[in-house]
Write a protein that binds this DNA or RNA. Sequence first.
DNA 1: TATGAATGAGACTTCATTCAT
DNA 2: TATGAATGAAGTCTCATTCAT
Lengths: 191, 191, 191, 191
Amino acid sequence: MAPRTEQQFEEIRESKKALILDKALELFATEGYYPTSISKIAEKAGISKGLIYNYFESKEDIIITIIHKGLDDLFRIFDPNKDGVLTKDEIRFFIEQMFDIMRKDLHFWKLYFMIFMQPPVLKLVEKKFMELIQASLNMLTNHFMSEGYDDPQTEAILLGALLDGTGFHYVMNPENFPVERIKERIIKMYC
Amino acid sequence: MAPRTEQQFEEIRESKKALILDKALELFATEGYYPTSISKIAEKAGISKGLIYNYFESKEDIIITIIHKGLDDLFRIFDPNKDGVLTKDEIRFFIEQMFDIMRKDLHFWKLYFMIFMQPPVLKLVEKKFMELIQASLNMLTNHFMSEGYDDPQTEAILLGALLDGTGFHYVMNPENFPVERIKERIIKMYC
Amino acid sequence: MAPRTEQQFEEIRESKKALILDKALELFATEGYYPTSISKIAEKAGISKGLIYNYFESKEDIIITIIHKGLDDLFRIFDPNKDGVLTKDEIRFFIEQMFDIMRKDLHFWKLYFMIFMQPPVLKLVEKKFMELIQASLNMLTNHFMSEGYDDPQTEAILLGALLDGTGFHYVMNPENFPVERIKERIIKMYC
Amino acid sequence: MAPRTEQQFEEIRESKKALILDKALELFATEGYYPTSISKIAEKAGISKGLIYNYFESKEDIIITIIHKGLDDLFRIFDPNKDGVLTKDEIRFFIEQMFDIMRKDLHFWKLYFMIFMQPPVLKLVEKKFMELIQASLNMLTNHFMSEGYDDPQTEAILLGALLDGTGFHYVMNPENFPVERIKERIIKMYC
DNA sequence: TATGAATGAGACTTCATTCAT
DNA sequence: TATGAATGAAGTCTCATTCAT
């Protein structure tokens, strides 16, 4: 019989890779990175342990891939038109959307906060992470500067911390978090 | 030499136990819980691996002890006169002191944030944790209610998130955090 | 296009088989038998892993084939007219040629010496190997007997060891081996 | 109960380490390096797999230790008074003794020849190996020079190859090797 | 109290081989 | 004939915990 075409292989590869990443993300987020073994990921994905190494070099490679992909997505959301400038509307939009975005991808967001507090995991993605955070802070600072704030940098750090703090609490316990009222309260503060 | 008295033994026990907890906290905070082996703790404490099991039942027991002790301390700080009521002055005092407190015990505070994001670790101390958080939120809510806020609960959650968020960023990178300006900014908001 | 004839298929088969054997030999000789994976052989031969199993039953089958083929070639060199009798001229010829022969096929000769020292590999080809060695020793013994040596068998064993020893050193480090002078020296001893 | 003294621990360590090295050498020599698993070594030594890692860093560490120790012993035998100079008597003595020495330590000598032909294993000990070989060749060359040979270097290489070749055959099949007659024959050549 | 040798379960990873296409 | 995804056994190694002294 004729062998599969290149494209067929590519499709298999892509879908299987996505499956592994998906199950790994779920397990990392619910059980933690270290307690999640390659075996568990394989089991959850319904494949053999060995196959995972056909797609990823190591367990580290899996989490790095997940985080890099997630951070790219995140950055796209934070500055949709990619101009490096935040308008008041973009901030309002971001605050209004962020909890929805988080809810849709709860696992990633758990992982997002998890990363900070796992020294060896943080080290794996530190560079990309710090770049992203710095870029966000700079954009917020510039925004507050153009809005005429007294101390735009402090304000940017404060807003950053507030968003992280609320995001964190939301992700930890989404059912009992008063999303709408928190949204309004933050928007009232800044817009 | 006279044999040691019962009390002397007890003192040795206590100081050794404290030593182990201290070194374990340091390692957990800097390297993470899972990557820190019992051997490393023993080495850092200058004792043998086996001895650790003379004082603690397991690795889990160590981290549980550390966290419980830390949470008790934390609670004492948050409500110094233990009356369950927060005055405006207590809040101002807390905000003014919290970064100093954190700086003095940076390792614990790293661990504090770490706990949330390590599901198996969180599970170990979940009950005590949730009680503390709920108690704090209730006190803040009551405070804002007595201050005549429209939506005291949302305000309490927001302040909680803000304190967590700023605390988190401070602990992550204390050198570059504008402590004084952030303090003032928060106090201006709430006092 | 006209369909390939049976014979054309056969030719493709043979040339592909030879390609696999060639690349496998190279890798076995330079990297060792165990560290060489089927994947590496396939990659080096520019074919897929699976195809190798179309031509060979197993990794063992590959090395057995290589060694058997090599031993057949070797035997042809050692006794060109296949009469089972070695003349003084044939010995001189063999000594004069052996280093050239080795240089042309360095990989096989590395493998030749490697075989002895890899018990599981040796076991695979032991029978053929021992037959060859015994036959060679017998021919040498007969030769020395006809030359009137006191102890022809010892002399045969000694020459065998000398040829193995010099061959071994040559193969290990062909650049720094004084081939010509060694040749002359051995010929002076025996011819 | 009082813990073991430092010396008691030292004794345990030394004897257990020797046991592991002994069993590992035996298996490496009879089964080969790669086919010998840590499990097999542990089983043969009657201990647990994990314990081996209490004494050695890795499987590589084990073979390196064995080979380095063996080479040190070998060098002591080859130049007993360690003066870097070989007399005719020392050579005669070496030739007379070498097969006895080999018989007593057959496993090591199999390993000795094995090393050359396992590229990754050779790499582990290459430096020490090459130094030893060069030193031996230099001593032999100096010897033949002082004996007035025409081409002392070639003679040294030839004797080296002869000793390796006979040693190799002896180790491969000690029962059927005419040790005494080979000894005499070599001594007749050189002394 | 104190030591560190010893265990054993389980982690990550590799790779010869099979198989659907 | 040809491909490479998929398997599963086995290998190396780690580490919390136990135990004899």
